[in-house]
Design a protein around this nucleic acid. Structure first.
Ligand SMILES: [Mn+2]
Ligand SMILES: [Mn+2]
Ligand SMILES: [Zn+2]
Ligand SMILES: [Zn+2]
Lengths: 142, 142
DNA sequence: TCAACAGTTTAGAATAAATATAATGTATTA
DNA sequence: TAATACATTATATTTATTCTAAACTGTTGA
């Protein structure tokens, strides 16, 4: 259980008790090579598959929200019947594949700084996100 | 009933029968000075207020979807429990006021062309949308 | 003109994501 | 280890959206 130590620390430092449910969710979310995007439904399935413990749906929701609050997850603005979440919390943009219903990261470096030549009095910009919707390129290439 | 003629034409040309419900919804959506953003709930309220007829919730949903399909409305990608719709179907971007839960248009001219230096093999970009989240600027200005 | 038909509306039921409830369980700390 | 605050859970609730199927209406062509 060596690597779960880091999650116990992480949780404690955040003022969250390191319960076995939360530690498991940390492992699923953060103990991976690459960041990824998921829905609650998908996360539940991943936990079910690789867990020796049962985690209730309510706890999955609670934990995801707690992690968002702490900045360990981001919610992705996508028009869908369900929310998407991102383990990549750096500032970046997305392709959204409308056929696969999958998000693909676009690094900040791969998009020129978005320059908005307009302001709203009394308001400041908190975040700027680009979503590029993509579909299959079925061009008849001559 | 002079101006409703144009909506009757519009509907007929789209292969949609010009029913009194659809004509009324056209008036509410398109017979206004400015384009605007709305949720289904808000649209139902507007119809209720200015209509002499009753339009069922199912018809409001059906009609909005039919109009999206015809390109008369756009759905706005926003992370929310409900969908936002836009009567401005030109290519443009948005501020989203997180406190008021309101969308504000940003004309295409007010944002430099978003240049994405990355492609996905076999996929083409269908649309690029910028969403800038804004909040109150409560800075203590010295 | 009007019957036939396809398209439309509607109330109400069904679905499903998300949240709330409240009882039970557990990590923490003194 | 006892007290307590925090967390988990099954279950109920909420709410946006979609589905269903019966009634209704716009269109068409005989
Ligand atoms: Mn949420
Ligand atoms: Mn929903
Ligand atoms: Zn991402
Ligand atoms: Zn708009």
């Amino acid at each position: 259980m060596a690597y779960s130590e880091q999650y116990i620390d992480k949780l404690r430092k955040s003022g969250l008790r390191p319960t076995k449910q939360r530690i498991k969710i940390c492992e699923v979310l953060f103990d991976v090579e690459k960041t990824f995007h998921f829905t609650i439904k998908e996360l539940v399935k991943i936990i079910e598959n690789q867990a020796n413990i049962k985690v209730s749906l309510a706890t999955v929701y609670n934990t995801v929200h707690a992690f968002i609050k702490k900045g360990y997850l981001k919610e992705i603005p996508l028009n869908a019947s369900q929310s998407y979440y991102d383990t990549n919390v750096t500032h970046h943009h997305h392709f959204f594949d409308e056929e696969e219903n999958k998000l693909i990261d676009i690094h900040q470096d791969d998009v020129d700084e978005v320059n908005i030549k307009r302001t709203i009095p009394g308001k400041k910009i908190r975040s700027v996100e680009v979503i590029a919707k993509i579909v299959s390129d079925n061009q008849s290439q001559k």
